[in-house]
Computed example of a mutant assay.
Amino acid sequence: MSDVNALTERIDALEMRLTYQDVTIETLNQTITEQWKQIDALTRQLAELKERLQEAESNAPGPANEPPPHY
């Protein structure tokens, strides 16, 4: 009878560990999903800023490295 009790206790302990692991995995999954959303938004924002900078540089008058007229 003690063998049955010992096995029952081991199974219960394993089930509890599995439950905690499932919760941890779900929490990590949610965290990673949120981080990827942030990374995606930042990547799009960076692409927009790069495009705007290129437009501003192409619309700028004259070359940027031109020496001043007094040289």
Rank of each mutant, 00 (worst) to 15 (best):
residue 9 E to V: 07
residue 37 K to H: 05
residue 44 R to F: 13
residue 63 P to W: 07
residue 13 A to L: 11
residue 59 N to Y: 02
residue 56 A to W: 01
residue 1 M to V: 12
residue 49 L to G: 00
residue 60 A to R: 06
residue 11 I to K: 09
residue 29 N to D: 12
residue 27 T to N: 09
residue 57 E to S: 00
residue 47 A to W: 01
residue 54 Q to A: 15
residue 20 Y to L: 10
residue 62 G to N: 03
residue 16 M to S: 14
residue 20 Y to S: 11
residue 32 I to A: 11
residue 51 E to V: 10
residue 65 N to K: 02
residue 4 V to T: 14
residue 29 N to P: 05
residue 20 Y to D: 13
residue 12 D to E: 05
residue 63 P to M: 15
residue 22 D to S: 13
residue 55 E to L: 02
residue 38 Q to V: 05
residue 10 R to P: 00
residue 40 D to G: 07
residue 5 N to R: 08
residue 12 D to K: 10
residue 62 G to P: 00
residue 32 I to C: 07
residue 18 L to A: 12
residue 60 A to I: 03
residue 47 A to M: 03
residue 53 L to S: 07
residue 8 T to Y: 09
residue 51 E to N: 08
residue 53 L to K: 01
residue 22 D to M: 11
residue 50 K to C: 01
residue 52 R to T: 02
residue 1 M to D: 15
residue 62 G to E: 00
residue 4 V to G: 11
residue 17 R to P: 03
residue 38 Q to I: 04
residue 14 L to F: 05
residue 18 L to M: 09
residue 34 E to C: 08
residue 43 T to D: 01
residue 21 Q to E: 13
residue 58 S to G: 04
residue 33 T to R: 08
residue 22 D to I: 10
residue 3 D to I: 12
residue 71 Y to S: 07
residue 40 D to Q: 09
residue 28 L to R: 12
residue 10 R to C: 02
residue 38 Q to A: 10
residue 67 P to E: 02
residue 40 D to W: 01
residue 14 L to H: 10
residue 32 I to D: 05
residue 13 A to P: 13
residue 5 N to V: 10
residue 14 L to T: 12
residue 35 Q to N: 08
residue 19 T to P: 01
residue 17 R to V: 02
residue 44 R to P: 04
residue 3 D to Y: 15
residue 36 W to A: 12
residue 31 T to Q: 10
residue 69 P to Y: 04
residue 27 T to F: 06
residue 44 R to A: 15
residue 48 E to V: 06
residue 5 N to Y: 08
residue 70 H to V: 14
residue 64 A to W: 08
residue 12 D to Q: 05
residue 17 R to L: 04
residue 68 P to A: 03
residue 49 L to R: 00
residue 47 A to P: 04
residue 2 S to H: 13
residue 11 I to A: 10
residue 46 L to F: 04
residue 8 T to A: 12
residue 50 K to G: 00
residue 19 T to W: 08
residue 53 L to C: 05
residue 9 E to N: 10
residue 65 N to F: 05
residue 16 M to E: 15
residue 63 P to I: 08
residue 40 D to R: 08
residue 22 D to C: 13
residue 62 G to T: 01
residue 10 R to V: 03
residue 51 E to W: 04
residue 18 L to N: 13
residue 39 I to Y: 12
residue 70 H to F: 13
residue 32 I to E: 07
residue 68 P to Q: 04
residue 39 I to C: 04
residue 55 E to D: 06
residue 24 T to F: 05
residue 34 E to H: 07
residue 15 E to P: 02
residue 61 P to Q: 14
residue 45 Q to M: 00
residue 64 A to C: 06
residue 32 I to T: 12
residue 69 P to H: 05
residue 65 N to H: 04
residue 27 T to Y: 07
residue 21 Q to Y: 09
residue 11 I to W: 09
residue 20 Y to M: 10
residue 4 V to P: 08
residue 60 A to H: 12
residue 52 R to M: 00
residue 57 E to P: 02
residue 52 R to S: 01
residue 14 L to Y: 05
residue 70 H to Q: 11
residue 24 T to D: 15
